[in-house]
C-alpha cells in the first residue's frame, strides 16, 4: 500500500473514532477546563503553521518566491473583512501575475 493510502486509511479511522468519542464511547462527561484551553488553541496554531508551510516552505529550506506577495495581499484583504473566496482569488492573481511577468 502506498504512503498516501496508509495515511488516508489511518486518518480516516482516527477521525471516525474522534467524532464518535462522545456519543458512542463516553456519554456525558466534560473535558477539564485546562484541556479545553489547550484544545481551543489547536485551530489558530496549526492553521498558522500550515499558512507558513504553504507560503515559504520548500524542499527542507525556506523559499521566498511569488507566493509571499500573494499571501501578503490576501492577508490585507482578510484583515479588511474580505470573504475566503476573495482572499484566495487575490492571492492567486498576485502570485500568478508575478510568475507570468518574471
Amino acid at each position: 500500500m502506498s504512503t498516501a493510502w496508509v495515511v488516508i486509511v489511518v486518518v480516516g479511522v482516527a477521525s471516525i473514532l474522534f467524532k464518535a468519542a462522545g456519543p458512542v464511547f463516553l456519554g456525558r462527561r466534560d473535558l477539564p477546563p485546562r484541556m479545553v484551553a489547550v484544545v481551543s488553541l489547536i485551530g489558530p496554531v496549526m492553521l498558522t503553521a500550515l499558512v507558513v508551510t504553504q507560503t515559504v516552505g520548500g524542499d527542507q529550506e525556506i523559499v521566498l518566491d511569488a507566493r509571499l506577495p500573494g499571501v501578503a495581499a490576501a492577508a490585507i484583504v482578510v484583515r479588511r473583512g474580505a470573504p475566503v473566496a476573495v482572499a484566495m482569488l487575490v492571492a492567486a492573481v498576485v502570485t500568478g501575475t508575478i510568475r507570468l511577468v518574471t
Partner: peptide, 9 residues
C-alpha cells in the same frame, strides 16, 4: 498561494 490564503482566512 491561494491555498495558503485559504488557511489564512
Amino acid at each position: 498561494a491561494a491555498f495558503a490564503a485559504l488557511f489564512l482566512a
